[in-house]
Design a protein around this nucleic acid. Structure first.
Length: 416
RNA sequence: GCGGAUGUAGCUCAGGGGUUAGAGCGCCUGACUGUGGCUCAGGAGGUCGUGGGUUCAAGACCCAUCUUCCGCCCCA
């Protein structure tokens, strides 16, 4: 009987795991520089949390949610994203009392019930951060800046920051009506299903890739025409801050984001190095979310970045990450030196050297071969001759140079 | 959720009804009695994705199902 993983999940093998480790380390080191602290939340959440947190588009979102009934007939959802659960935790644990600011980050699996394909899995992983409790555009700029620095630190080149604003909920409502009206000539000939979807969230018409829809909405006034002065002012402020921080961006009116909790700033980072699944991350401001989930009104901004997507781009752009290699491979002559070999291995490990040895009593030739394959920097050969005069032969696997070293001095020689 | 492909050795792939299913790379052993990469020789390794069906005979043909990939959709 063969046991396979759940459809739409991937095993992370040793040949790629070090890339994940590199990414997670890069991320946590970066966000620590900005004072963010890690938060861990469960992968199961109440379905209601996501229905409420996703607002008007809940039917679209719930179609993608990985939901099921547990043994107590409760509707459980595997978390499809990190923000709502993090906000639930913030509310339940009073992590951000009114008047304070909280910086949190997470690294977590997410689950969405969609048709898997390259770059899209039912279980994927995200790193994300949330800056909670501030309405200032400086907060937005900080989050976007960290995002860009993250991709820089990973060595990723062909990225573009797409920036837009949705305004506050009041002016957004006006804008929705405007789009709907503008699209009427096209919509009235469409099937009921299309019209219902459009009425549910007219903004989504804007990022449609359907040429017919694009044609119908050509010349539609941009959201900036409907922004209140306050929203306009903070959007200008944000742009000035990004320019000051030397963060390149492109204003993209068609970035509206699928989750309806966003207000004011929204942004995505896209790559031109991969295929259809080109979005690397998504983020924005969600000033009303915490209140909608039952907390005090707390303006916040955040971003979530897909780990698989970032690794895909790294690979597509040919970015090499150094694979961890052992320092020394200890070669033994056979049973007569086995005990001394184990002692040498222990000494090396205790002194901080990653050390390998042969465990199948294979020939010396085979052991050197294993040493070569392992990528070890040195082979330390301990045979009968060496044992007799208390030395070890240290072979540099790169240059093939060998020298005889007294057993007691091996560590100090390696240090050089 | 829709459309089109795909699945044979660890990897990349050939075989398109007829004995015991192949190649290259990789792996193991030896030539080389204590020394990796090169060469040569030998060897191990396969429920031909899974389940049904057609046939004297199925890896091959038919049906179903699953996987992966490419679009759509959606987004991470």
């Amino acid at each position: 009987m063969k046991y396979k993983a759940q459809r739409g999940t991937q095993d992370v093998l040793p040949s790629t795991a070090y890339r994940w480790q590199n990414l997670e380390r890069t991320f946590s080191e970066l966000v620590h520089q900005y004072g963010y602290q890690e938060i861990r939340t469960p992968i199961f959440e109440d379905t209601d949390l996501f229905i409420r947190s996703s607002g008007e588009t809940s039917d679209i979102v719930s179609k993608q949610m990985y939901s099921f009934l547990d043994k107590g007939e409760r509707s459980i959802t595997l978390k499809p994203e990190g923000t709502a659960p993090a906000m639930r935790a913030v509310i339940e644990n009073s992590l951000c009392p009114p008047g304070t600011v909280q910086r949190l980050y997470y690294i977590t699996p997410i689950f969405r019930y969609e048709r898997p394909q390259k770059g899209r899995y039912r279980q994927a992983h995200q790193v994300g951060l949330e800056l909670i409790g501030s309405a200032s555009s400086t907060a937005d700029a900080e989050v976007i800046e960290i995002t860009v620095r993250f991709y820089e630190a990973l060595g990723i080149k062909n990225v573009q920051v797409l920036l837009n604003t949705l305004g506050r909920s009041e002016c957004r409502a006006k804008y929705r009506d405007a789009i709907l009206e503008y699209a009427q000539p096209y919509l009235k000939d469409q099937p009921e299903e299309v019209r219902a979807k459009a009425e549910k969230n007219p903004l989504r018409l804007l990022d449609s890739k359907d040429p017919e829809v694009q044609e119908a909405l050509k010349g539609c006034p941009p959201v900036t025409d409907y922004l209140e002065d306050e929203s306009k002012r903070r959007f200008d402020e944000l742009q000035a801050l990004l320019t000051e921080a030397k963060v390149a961006y492109v204003i993209s009116p068609d970035i509206v984001r699928g989750l309806d909790y966003y207000t004011e700033t929204v942004f995505e980072v896209q790559s031109t190095s991969i295929g259809a699944q080109s979005a690397l991350c998504g983020g924005g401001r969600y000033d009303d979310l915490i209140q909608e989930l039952g907390g005090a009104s707390t303006p916040s901004v955040g971003v979530a970045m897909g780990i698989e997507r970032a690794l895909m781009v790294q690979e597509a752009e040919g970015i090499e990450i150094d694979e961890p290699k052992p320092d020394v491979f200890v070669v033994s002559a056979g049973p007569s030196t086995a005990r001394a070999t184990r002692e040498l291995v222990t000494t090396l490990r205790n002194n901080g050297y990653a050390t390998l040895l042969d465990i199948d009593a294979r020939s010396m030739k085979s052991q050197l071969k294993q040493a070569d394959k392992s990528g070890a920097r040195y082979a330390a050969i301990l045979g009968d001759d060496e044992l007799a005069n208390g030395t070890v032969t240290l072979r540099d696997m790169g240059s093939s140079e060998q020298r005889s070293v007294p057993l007691s001095e091996i560590v100090s020689v390696l240090k050089k």
